[in-house]
Write a protein that binds this DNA or RNA. Sequence first.
DNA 1: AATGAATGAGGGTTCATTCAT
DNA 2: CATGAATGAACCCTCATTCAT
Lengths: 218, 218, 218, 218
Amino acid sequence: MAESRSRYDEKLALVLRTAASIFADKGYHQASIRDLSRATGLSLSGLYYCFSSKEELLFLTPDHCFGPILENLEELLTGVDEPRERLRLLIDNHLRFFVGNMKEMKVLSHEAESLSGEYRRRVNAKKKRYTDLCMEILAALSPAESTAALRTATFSLFGMMNWIYNWYRPDRDEPVDRLADRMCRLFLEGYLAGGALEPRPRDAGGSTDESGPSIWRR
Amino acid sequence: MAESRSRYDEKLALVLRTAASIFADKGYHQASIRDLSRATGLSLSGLYYCFSSKEELLFLTPDHCFGPILENLEELLTGVDEPRERLRLLIDNHLRFFVGNMKEMKVLSHEAESLSGEYRRRVNAKKKRYTDLCMEILAALSPAESTAALRTATFSLFGMMNWIYNWYRPDRDEPVDRLADRMCRLFLEGYLAGGALEPRPRDAGGSTDESGPSIWRR
Amino acid sequence: MAESRSRYDEKLALVLRTAASIFADKGYHQASIRDLSRATGLSLSGLYYCFSSKEELLFLTPDHCFGPILENLEELLTGVDEPRERLRLLIDNHLRFFVGNMKEMKVLSHEAESLSGEYRRRVNAKKKRYTDLCMEILAALSPAESTAALRTATFSLFGMMNWIYNWYRPDRDEPVDRLADRMCRLFLEGYLAGGALEPRPRDAGGSTDESGPSIWRR
Amino acid sequence: MAESRSRYDEKLALVLRTAASIFADKGYHQASIRDLSRATGLSLSGLYYCFSSKEELLFLTPDHCFGPILENLEELLTGVDEPRERLRLLIDNHLRFFVGNMKEMKVLSHEAESLSGEYRRRVNAKKKRYTDLCMEILAALSPAESTAALRTATFSLFGMMNWIYNWYRPDRDEPVDRLADRMCRLFLEGYLAGGALEPRPRDAGGSTDESGPSIWRR
DNA sequence: AATGAATGAGGGTTCATTCAT
DNA sequence: CATGAATGAACCCTCATTCAT
């Protein structure tokens, strides 16, 4: 019994891992269930025994990833009050998971908006919880002058961290702990030094076209 | 002759503008040529008179976007030697284009890797030129201790800026010049203050598992 | 042993009853074995312990229906010689079964031709026996001038009766004994008054296009 | 221009005719678009150029049939006031179309309930108009004592006529005009003689179990 | 110059059925 | 006895693309 449960779980894990890899490589919509069938060696209908639709598969993939990130972080933060240390833990935890599961995280970043309905709601709820946690830490670090400013800072940090699936190569770049350290200091110093303060006054006569030139409609 | 040339150009411009919008909304692969046909009012075969394949269309879209960014930046930088100001100009230019053409830029970030062959080569060449320019500026700002460190800094900056299509909403967030200003100071202060220096020594016995825990294989 | 036999019979009866209901609701081909599995609470493989194929299931359903109709009728007719009364009994018996088992009878009428091979042969044999019995009664009522005329009369009667699954609603229409009575008199009077006689001469020059206008080929 | 229009129409007509035939032979749900592709020699996607879904195809098939029946009948009835003659025209028209387009009419009778939404609504509207017309004629023939009685008579007539796709074989049965004549007299005499009157009182002590024995639940 | 008509390849999904356990 | 897991075949439908006109 435990045997057969374990067998099924192993297979499910294989399917999810492979799916994440394929989704990451080709993108969710480009990836076909037939690709997954070929890559796992399972039949088409055998796959549908594990999940009920391609969309559910997309949901399962990053959802199984996101849970651990959050849980692990909340555990790490327990008993730590110093905001700088809390931020360091968040960044370290985040990058560790991203580098360790780059494919899954790319899917999470890239394809989550392809979800709909309940799936979308659940993924968004977790994302929001995570984002809120980060915002709290930043707010504790330095009094942000506005919500908009806090948003800019928060998403700048996430952008910095999440972007790594576009460039990070383990064989060529720094190991993840140095990466985390560097990003941590980069963001922290910048944020404390002024990133969170009101912007300096612009030079008089500077461009006031806020939206910038439209390329197509110029 | 000039007449018909102009007619053709008008039509091509309409097609490219509409395509960029559709690609940005639905993603390149989800968008069908039929969608484009419906949205432009042109027939399927009429469209193929303007471009030779869907992939060419994808190439044209961000290519027309990227050109202006680079050209505009190179013009702005002419005669400016001070590295801090050069960086400020790059960030400002970048964000202006991104906010002003968010849909196209999303395609550029998201779908460029769907290109193949010659198309891919040409887009990558431009990206590399742009990246190299940014690296030079950063290198001039502060002596990076290693290529890897410079890469981390450069792509942290790009991540910060490019991520905005995931969160920036003109009606809710800061106008683009304040956004640029804030990101500029955030990065600059962080980079100069230590983001570019060697990381502080880690606690002895710290984790050396560089790849972090794997979620699936734990 | 008797115990387990009885258990099996109970299960079989449940399966057949449920199957008849599902077939009637959705149609034989639309109904899936999974539907049956869900509706009975039995597992897929558990079902296949009761029958060997979906087709057998279709066979069993109307076959269990048709038996009682025939047997009951033959019993009722025993000792009754008067043709009018015999016809009345047939109609009454037929409608009672149809109204009482509308779902099953719809399957019988609708889907029996989906059977093949031996299954089909057996159902057809019973149908033929039933049809022949009706024809005999009609022939005894009035000397039909031709086989074709007798066929027309017989199948007109069956059409009249079998059609009810298309329109009869117990809560809205007459109770079944009045229905039977009305149909009986309708058919009987019509049949005796002339439905069985040679048709009156058609107007000279009348249409001789026997097949009528073809809608598609006109 | 007229040429190409005619070409497309010819093809559409071929598709509809073939579809009706296949639907009639195998049933709507059993018939696959691939069957239609094989039978017409057109490619799968070529077919979808003619219609937009299988359900639309099912709608088109009998809808194209039902229009002519109604229109033709209404034309025939113009200027004819005598109810018996009106009924005769209805029956004659109905049977002509049914015999001439037996496959399509089988689909109409058998499969119309597989339609959904707007398709279903439109087919039902036409059916109702036709049914109402028939009821009016019957009501004019003899004062029915109740709506239920009128319904019974009307649907008995339709059952008689529609059932023919189950048994009528042109090479073996009477030609359609004799068939029409016979059914007309059968129904007319029966209806006038008493089918429309109140049923005679039942023998005292007769069965009052209106729903008849349930086969499965006895 | 421009299009209506057509196509082959492939998409996600469901089905009746089997078989090791 | 009974089932969970698996399968091959087939389903309806959409796609980018072409070609005669």
